[in-house]
Each structure stands twice: as C-alpha cells, then as structure tokens.
Write a protein that binds this DNA or RNA. Structure first.
Lengths: 200, 200
DNA sequence: CTACAAAGTAGCCACTGTCTACCAAGTGGT
DNA sequence: ACCACTTGGTAGACAGTGGCTACTTTGTAG
C-alpha cells in the first residue's frame, strides 16, 4: 500500500529559502549558537547533507541570515517612516523606535548581523548593511537642511545616534536593563541627540 | 627510568583559576563559540573531565568569565580615573575612552559579558556589572553637582551615555566601522552628550 | 535519447559537551 | 596511627554536531 503522506519529491524545489526560513524561526527560539544545520535539515524533511548544496558552511548560512536581516531592517525602517509626517523630528523618532524595536525583538538575528567574524564574502553583508545605514544618514541630512542639526561630519553624527540605539538594545538583550525601559530610553536618547547635535 | 618532565601532582591545586586564565587567553584568539572545555583541559594538562569539578557546565565557565570580565572592566575604569584631574569633563572623557578601549580590545569577552542568556545564577554577573555601572553613575552625579549636567533621571542619563559607547564598540567589533575611528567617535559622542544633557 | 549538471542521500570522521563509574589524595576525628 | 569521608582528577561511554566523500535521483539541454 502506498504511503498515505504526501511524499516530498526528490528535489525540494526551494530548499535554500526553506532553510533560511526555518533558521530564522529557530533563531528566535534558541539563539545563534544552538542553531544546527542538521536540525534545520530535519525540520525541512531533508537529509543532513542536503543543506551543503546551498550553504558550503554553517557560517555561510549565518551570513545569508545576516544579509536578509539587514534587508528586513531596512524594510521595517522605511515602513516606519511611511506613515509619518515629513518633518525631521517625527521622522527621527519613528526611525529610532523602529530600529530599537527590531533590535530587541530580533535579538538573536541582530547578534548574527553584527557577529563580526564574517568570511571574505562579507562584502555582501556590508552592502546590505549600507542600505539602512544610508537611510539614517539621509535623515541626518534632512535634519541639517532643516537647521535642526549642526555637523561637519554627517557620517559620524549618524553613527553616534545609531550607536546609542544599538547600545540600548545591547543592554536590553543582555538582561542588564529591563525591556520595558526601551521606549523611555530611546525617547531620552533622541532628545539628547537633538539638543547635543542641534544649533546652540 | 623516571619521567624526565616535571610531573604535575595528582591535584592541580588551582585548576579553576588556571582554566579561567586559559579561557580568557583562548577567548582572545578564537571567540566564544569556539571555546572548548576539552581544549582548555588539554592546555592546562588535565583530563577532559576535570573541569567539571569546577564548572558544572560550559555555560558556568562562561558566566564566571563574564563576572571576572566586569571586575576587570571596573578596575580599568578606576585606573583610568586615577591619573586624571578632579573636574568632571576630563574624568568623563577618561572613563569613556577606557570603556571603549576595553570593549574593543576585549571584544570576545565583552560578548560573553552581555550574552544575555545567562543561567539562574546570573545574579552574580549582574552584581559584578553593577560595579562599573555605578561608577559611571557617580560620574553623572558629579556632573550634575558641577552644574554641567541637567537630569531628572540619573540612571537613565548614565545609561544613555554608556549605551552610546557600547554601540560604538558593537559597530567596531562587528566590522561595520573601522577600528581607527574609535577615538574620534568617542570624542564626538562625549561632546554631544555634554551638550545634549547640559544646561541650556 | 542521451549526456550532463544540479540536488539530495548515506555513511564516515573528528570533535564536542555531558554523564557515570572509578581512583588518588588530602583531612578531621578518635 | 588509623580510618571514614570529602575533594579533585581520570577514563570511557554517549549522542549530537559540522564537514567531507562517494553515490543516486532527477531535471534539462543538445
């Protein structure tokens, strides 16, 4: 008698995507170091060696996750800016909150994104990271154009702001600061930034 | 004929300390996830099961590393403040630079310190972390007393500053920002903080 | 129809963390 | 001086992992 279960055809068809999907789900549950290729293979219903066809390495999969992570971050930032007025201040607040939300709600993914020890092919990741970074920088340009920001080094100013948000997320994800304090800290950080980098 | 090598006595005497030492050295070379208990045991010249007597778990060792990491951070911060004048601003700059230096030069250790997923016994780690955090907070108090800082929430103000430094280190350690930019970024961050949290 | 490339399988290896049973050495009480 | 007991180290087993290789199944281009 034939198997009652719908048999997967020999070729999965979209293993790579399925693995990345499973990985991002699993990442949320267990964290990066407990992410196991074999586990993912099992979950997708494929032999333990199959992932190798799509990711030469465990690290290669993590790199791919990092890349798509930056892409998602970019989407979420832009989405957050969509429903907001055109003025600098509300846009800044929206972007900052969106970044902090992403960074705390996808803590493990963020860890992978900034893991550092990326392989030679990290160019792709850096390129993906440049997207959301650029968005923040454009925002700083807008602030300068509106006369609310004074800076001789755009990149540096944007980076300091972003670093603050990143650091807040670090502390929350590390358990040093309670998650409930996130919004308040972000608010304070943005306000201080506005006064610190604004005209005197 | 007897072994020509000086034989270690059956009891090592200070295995725990030796393991932590080796671990911190190894951490510098390979990062947290490649830190292997068996490897450490080999390095110290002891059987692979021996570490278990001192650390029930791999995570227990990492926790111990985190704890001593915060202790060292505290020492380095205090050391940095020792050779500096009594005024707020130079002290702030010194502390900020010391934190950033520690965070970038001991990147892997920092990762362990803020790894988050600590076991129930994380209280010890949080207590150890409170030490350097408190120091930063005292600094903020001094700033307020000298009239250079205006804040209704000391803890929050200190945290925002610390977060900025932490974030800068994150980006450098993640390879998103070149290490050479560290001092410049820290300088800019501190200046912006002073203006942002200072009297208007 | 037939090569050939792409995708998946199965088994092996070295390595890891964890567990257990055992052994060696120090220690305190009598 | 002896002996029970605790502390610390050893050795071997186990399951799980990433990486590798040889092999098979399938899709596809000529």
């Amino acid at each position: 008698m034939p198997e009652s279960v719908a048999e997967r055809p020999y070729h999965h068809g979209s293993l790579r995507a399925a693995l990345l999907d499973a990985a991002e789900r699993r990442l949320r549950e267990v964290g990066p170091d407990r992410l196991s290729l074999r586990d993912l293979a099992r979950e997708v219903g494929v032999s333990h060696g199959a992932p190798r066809r799509h990711f030469v390495d465990r690290q290669a999969l993590l790199d791919a996750l990092a890349e798509s992570g930056f892409a998602r971050l970019d989407r979420e930032l832009r989405a957050a800016l969509d429903g907001v007025a055109d003025e600098f201040e509300p846009r800044l607040h929206a972007a900052a909150n969106a970044y902090a939300r992403f960074a705390t709600e996808s803590a493990s993914l963020l860890e992978v994104m900034y893991a550092g020890k990326h392989r030679p092919g990290a160019d792709r990741i850096l390129a993906a990271a440049a997207e959301p970074f650029g968005l923040l920088q454009e925002l700083v340009v807008q602030g300068r154009d509106e006369g609310l920001l004074v800076t001789d080094d755009l990149d540096r100013t944007a980076l300091v702001l972003l670093a603050t948000l990143q650091g807040i997320a670090s502390f929350i994800n590390g358990g040093v600061v309670e998650a409930e304090r996130r919004d308040g800290l972000v608010e304070a950080a943005v306000d201080q930034f506005l006064r610190g980098a604004g005209p005197r």
